[in-house]
């Protein structure tokens, strides 16, 4: 303790800045600041409400209902919401909806898995080695420029018209965003953290496991969100072009028979699938990135 007081006596010099004013002079005008903890911040966002996201869709359905009910909307153009519900119930009763849905979901899932795996591995190869970058990155950038639709004829040529082709088309679409975002995140890893790893004597493998991968995880998950959306888009394309099962097929068939209500149900299913899977990824995101302090968190 003695030494501490000695510092205090001698080393007021450590106090290079004037000490903060502890006592406020009574004559200075003061502002009353409400001190309820957890009140919203002044800049940025308020604390999010759990179901806030549902407001927009709800208003949309409301608007649509009103238009249908008042007859402004011709049922041949767009059936009313309750018609869509009726049709959906019918489709479920006959089993058509869930059978096709299961097939579609399985395709999308396989494509997503394959595409994510390929995207992640390529991103690691190209992000962590110079040669890998030279070889892989240019090719991926080329691929980015090619639309799926242009690719499908070749995929059919190579893989036939079966499941392999469909899953491949989805995977090829999915891997691009996964690759791009993971690669970006890898390249953005702070040199300070690399130095830290060096001074702590981490092995190459430990470095990748403890520093690189967690550091790139936000990028990977962002890529995954785009990837999931991309997987549904690719699914629609392959199923509507060339399939004998799945939601896309169901919609195509309905179009041939001018069943607008079935088409509409297909559309809604797509929307819900997209929404649901995105929510799932966001959930994973929230769990995996608990350590982050961001505006939205």
């Amino acid at each position: 303790m003695n030494s501490l007081t000695a510092i205090d006596a001698n080393a007021g010099s450590a106090l290079t800045a004037p000490p903060p004013a502890v006592t406020a002079r009574p004559e200075t005008p003061r502002r009353a600041i409400p001190s309820s903890a957890g009140s919203g911040r002044r800049l940025g966002l308020e604390k999010a409400s759990r179901f806030g996201w549902a407001l927009g869709p709800f208003l949309l359905v409301l608007y649509w209902s009103v238009l249908s009910y008042t007859g402004f909307l011709d049922p041949r153009t767009l059936p009313a919401p309750w018609v869509a519900v009726d049709t959906a119930v019918d489709l479920v009763r006959t089993g058509r909806l869930q059978d096709n849905l299961a097939i579609s979901a399985w395709r999308a899932f396989q494509g997503l898995l394959l595409g994510s795996g390929v995207g992640l591995v390529l991103a690691l190869l190209s992000g962590l080695s110079l040669l890998g970058g030279y070889v892989i990155d240019g090719v991926v950038q080329l691929k980015r420029g090619v639309p799926v639709l242009a690719l499908i004829p070749f995929m059919i040529l190579w893989f036939g018209i079966g499941e392999v082709m469909k899953v491949s088309v989805i995977a090829v679409t999915v891997f691009v965003p996964i690759y791009v975002h993971t690669h970006n995140a890898l390249r953005a890893i702070d040199i300070k953290q690399v130095e830290l790893a060096e001074t702590l004597g981490l092995t190459h493998l430990e470095f990748i496991r403890h520093v690189v991968l967690p550091g790139a995880l936000p990028g990977l998950l962002l890529g995954l969100r785009f990837g999931v959306t991309a997987s549904w888009l690719a699914l629609v394309v392959v199923e509507q072009l060339n399939a004998s099962s799945g939601i896309g097929y169901m919609v195509t068939l309905a179009r041939n028979y001018a069943q607008t209500d079935v088409m509409l149900v297909g559309l809604i299913v797509y929307a819900l699938l997209g929404l649901g899977s995105d929510a799932l990824v966001r959930l994973v995101q929230g769990r995996a990135l608990r350590w982050r302090r961001t505006l939205a968190a």
Binding site: K192, Q193, L196, L202, E206, H210, P214, G215, W291
Partner: peptide, 15 residues
Amino acid sequence: RLLPWKPVLDNVVLG
């Protein structure tokens, strides 16, 4: 220079 994705103890014992 702590790794933000690791709890305190994991940072201390890293490597």
